Amino acid sequence: MTVVRNEEGAIMVYNPLTEAMTFRCELCPGESFGRIHDLKRHQTSKHQEMTWPCDFCHRPFVRRDALLRHYTVKAARDDGLHPASHEVDKLLAARARAKMLY
């Protein structure tokens, strides 16, 4: 096996027997991924301190896309705390705020 770092600092492991390249997380020794995108998503989800709180229930999300999905799911369920899907203005405003924070 050959272990190298790419220009972004990711640990890349090449296995000549399978001719497969994997990417390892520095902070989680047992975690490896087949694509750099998956490693980056893991690092964002597990190791990033910044959170995205819901404007309505204040539940924190580590990834912005998870917060945006939360708004969509809660709007469809009409739980009384989050704006329902017919309250388009409130939903659009919350989604716009989440997108501007990035």
Score class of each variant (00 low, 15 high):
D55V: 07
T2P: 02
E31G: 11
M50S: 05
F33R: 01
N15D: 01
H82S: 09
T18F: 02
Y71R: 03
H47L: 10
T2L: 11
G34R: 06
G30F: 13
H82C: 02
W52I: 00
H37Y: 09
E87T: 04
L27C: 07
M21D: 08
E7W: 11
N15Y: 04
K74M: 13
F23G: 00
V4I: 10
M21F: 09
G9K: 12
L101M: 15
L17M: 02
A75I: 01
A96K: 12
K99R: 13
V88R: 15
Y71F: 03
M50L: 03
K90C: 02
H42K: 05
L91Q: 08
C25W: 01
L91P: 00
P60Y: 10
A75K: 02
A10P: 14
G34C: 07
K40C: 11
A75T: 07
E31I: 05
S32L: 04
I11A: 01
V3Q: 00
D38P: 06
E8Y: 08
R95F: 01
A98C: 01
W52A: 00
M1N: 14
N6R: 04
F23W: 11
T72Q: 13
K90E: 10
T72G: 12
H47W: 00
A96I: 07
A76C: 10
R41P: 02
W52K: 00
F61C: 07
H42F: 10
A84N: 02
R24E: 10
V73K: 14
D79C: 07
A96E: 15
R24Y: 12
D38V: 05
L101R: 14
I36R: 14
T72K: 13
M1E: 14
P16W: 02
H47Q: 03
H42R: 05
A98Q: 02
R41D: 06
S85K: 07
R69A: 14
